[in-house]
């Protein structure tokens, strides 16, 4: 498999679940900051699912 979800960053706990590590943020600002920090660690891309959930994907 080529693409892997490395992490999920979310605001609402009820919207996410499953195998990848999940990081919860308090507000929109923290959500974006977490996504940037995690993506820079892995050298991966951030994708927005439009429901206040970001996934960090290694391509």
């Amino acid at each position: 498999m080529e693409k892997i979800i490395l992490a999920v960053v979310a605001l609402d706990q009820t919207r996410v679940g499953g195998g990848a590590p999940i990081f919860y943020a308090r507000d929109q600002e923290e959500l974006e900051e977490l996504a940037v920090l995690i993506s820079r660690i892995f050298g991966a891309a951030v994708h927005d699912l439009h429901n206040d959930v970001y996934i960090i994907v290694k391509h």
Partner: peptide
Amino acid sequence: EGALVVIEGTVMMNVGLPES
């Protein structure tokens, strides 16, 4: 279109971060 970059109707990629 939201996070999607679109060129002449073709979706190129999902750019998640507003900064990007």
